[in-house]
Design a protein around this nucleic acid. Structure first.
Lengths: 342, 342
DNA sequence: CTGAAAGCGCTAACAG
DNA sequence: CTGTTAGCGCTTTCAG
């Protein structure tokens, strides 16, 4: 069954050299487009290589030249919820990153790790597999991330800016997003706006601060009972909303820290006979593709994914090259849909 | 700004060896858990390595040992639609693959390529970056895939089985899925069921065949006008449905080749005043997370993603080891929701 | 049990 | 313009 070694062996530079009757160096030069090589020879070798569908062994090349064009992209998850990432936001981000990395001729090594063992990403770098890392989501691992930075691991994270941050983050303007969303609800005349999300996660926290600020600006008092703690995952969002409804706390609007949460919360509310937007107006965050197609279509805060991916990639490259890059914020915008049309 | 070489240089085996006062070979053996080494020495070296957070350089290790534990995962896309993958199905798949590959101690190299240049995936393998490739989605590239197989590239594809298939595919039972979905609609008394999808893409084609078979089994004649051609992308789905409605062809049910298509089609229908399920019953395919939260919640054909990822990974490993693996089918089930409750 | 030496596939001086 | 020579960081015979 197994082919003989000779038959199965991958073709390599030495083979091309022998076939072309030149030295290995010549092949190497020809294939890397060196200028100091006879054009005719270059052509001949290039064609030979193509006809044999030969591609330089990147591992060997990298080892020798010391470079590495693979970027690690990490989506942390919470292992105790023992479930897969399903938030469409992540796919959009991943796609955008893949596009921009490809544009820059980088490979993307995708890795999932437990959010609480974020130190593990260091191994990706230490082992030489990647030249830098993009971490999607800060969770509540600010200190861990600072430690990584102290270790000089080149990485950037998608998330919010924090005081005493030693690493580069790129994120949407969470504070302003929260402000926009909440102001919108308050201007609709809503009196009791629930915030649903995890204040311990940096991004959600900043959205929450925007929510608080909106109340302050409008001169509204904020009832602490209106904070509904909930992680960024679907079943938990449903459980959280069900529990909240069971408590019977009055509310007439909901600002959720992500579209996924918002949409699942709406499902629970509807099941309990609450109408959106008549009884409760809802605003989400992210503007994932489905937001326009939920029931009802969801008003949300959009973050331009394409810009986000581009910013993350370019910031990472800067970190790699200069050892540091300034954190950046991507502007957000409110997208109004039926879930707040009353 | 830039650190001196000495400061920035990554630590390596030689350093550990020097610090431990042993030879490089000893370190190598200690770290790879060789049996023929003094336990005390092993411990000492292991601790030293950990304290310096040293990890073997995988590139060098692979080059020397000839192995490679990186699998390429490719999501082809249509470059002319110049847009990102947004179908949540892909994220679910990717997450599942990442989990199962991680379990088996493989890395995942994520790559997007133009569906029509599927030959390009060969370069991933030729360049030695990956030991095998998982291609998500067959598109209409059956022949190209056969060519890859002929070139002995180890890969498996998520898709349907086709006659004269020289490669291993893993997929849901598309035919049966189509049959289930359509039978469900016909049993509801629906007379004119539209099929929306791309018959040129293998998977959609097989779902279509199930759709045809359902009509045959129920003794219904099938109007060719009820085939609505549409790729697996959102804007196209909307355009296609809008165009279909404009033609004024009567229909009372819709079976879409994916949830994404179904949900976006429902959006267009609603905008034109058609009610789901009262006027049109709709069934999708995939059972993505959002399907339960669309408006209305979508009846769909579910494919167990976890099994799918596992099957793809194990089949690929078999292909790598034995040069061949039998194609597999994952069972599907109909999930009934409001979009077909009349 | 441990060290010395060879070499994985490639690039990059260094000599022609 | 081209070939020769040394390694990149590691594993693995082969001798102790």
């Amino acid at each position: 069954m197994a082919k003989s070694d000779a038959e199965n062996r991958k073709i390599q530079m030495a083979d091309i050299a022998r076939l072309a009757g030149v030295s290995i160096s010549t092949v190497s030069r020809a294939l890397s487009g060196s200028t100091l090589i006879n054009e005719e020879t270059r052509q001949r070798i290039a064609e030979l290589a193509k006809s044999l569908s030969y591609t330089v062994n990147l591992g060997a090349k990298n080892l020798r030249s010391g470079e590495n064009r693979t970027v690690g992209v990490v989506i942390p998850y919470l292992s105790d919820h023992r479930q897969h990432v399903t938030d469409p936001f992540f796919l959009a981000m991943l796609g955008s990153l893949a596009d921009h990395l490809t544009d820059q001729n980088f490979d993307l090594l995708f890795s999932r790790i437990d959010a609480r063992d974020i130190q593990n990403v260091a191994a990706l770098y230490d082992s030489g597999r990647v030249c830098g890392i993009i971490i999607i989501g800060q969770w509540s691992q600010h200190d861990s991330l600072n430690q990584l930075a102290r270790r000089q691991i080149p990485f950037v994270v998608w998330g919010g800016q924090l005081p005493q941050q030693m690493y580069c983050s790129v994120g949407s303007d969470n504070y302003n997003g929260g402000l926009l969303a909440t102001t919108h609800l308050l201007q609709l005349g809503k009196q009791r706006v629930v915030f649903m999300g995890d204040r311990d996660a940096t991004e959600a926290q900043q959205r929450y601060q925007g929510y608080v600020a909106a109340h302050a600006q409008m001169g509204k008092v904020l009832d602490p009972d209106l904070y509904l703690s909930c992680p960024f995952t679907e079943p938990e969002a449903q459980v959280a909303m069900a529990g909240f409804l069971a408590k019977g706390i009055a509310f007439d609007a909901l600002f959720a820290a992500s579209d996924l949460i918002a949409i699942h919360a709406m499902g629970v509310m509807r099941a309990q006979g609450l109408q959106v937007p008549q009884d409760v107006c809802v605003v989400g965050y992210d503007d994932v593709g489905m937001a326009a197609h939920s029931f009802p279509p969801l008003t949300t805060v959009s973050q331009p994914m394409d810009l986000a991916g581009e910013a993350l990639v370019s910031s990472l490259l800067t970190v790699i090259r200069q050892g540091h890059a300034d954190s950046r914020m991507i502007t957000t915008a409110l997208v109004e849909r039926d879930s707040t049309r009353i």
